[in-house]
């Protein structure tokens, strides 16, 4: 059930990427895909046990700490990508005056025709 839910979130991200024409919404979609993946990994790790992986005497029923460490890195990477994507979107908005990808593509091909 929970895995199905993550799958739906994953697909929502892809749907956003494919059906939203706005630059910012595409960035949000990328962020959603990233979150779905992070959740998927954490879900996998949680199957191994039920307690946080802080080792103390008598505590053996811990979740997989490796995936948590990995996902910490993946989250950081995801933030970097989102930040950069937003910077690029802003730069595009400043030069084309719109955040609509179709409009930007049309302007680019118009410029090319003129040359």
């Amino acid at each position: 059930m929970d895995r199905l839910l993550v799958g739906i979130v994953f697909l929502v991200g892809f749907a956003g990427l494919l059906f939203q024409r706005d630059l910012i919404k595409k960035v949000i979609a990328l962020s959603i895909i990233n979150s779905a993946l992070v959740t998927l990994f954490i879900l996998l790790g949680s199957r191994a046990g039920s307690e946080a992986p802080i080792l103390r005497e008598g505590r053996l029923d811990i979740v997989d700490p490796l995936v948590q460490a990995l996902m910490l890195t993946a989250i950081v990477v995801g933030i970097c990508i989102t930040a950069l994507a937003l910077v690029l979107s802003y730069a595009l908005y400043r030069s084309y005056g719109t955040t609509d990808t179709r409009e930007i593509e049309r302007l680019i091909s118009e410029q090319e025709e003129q040359q």
């Binding site: 690029l88 730069a91 595009l92 410029q111």
Partner: peptide, 10 residues
């Protein structure tokens, strides 16, 4: 910061 290159980058 050539607009077209920025779009290619995006």
């Amino acid at each position: 910061r050539k607009p077209r290159a920025v779009y290619a980058g995006f």
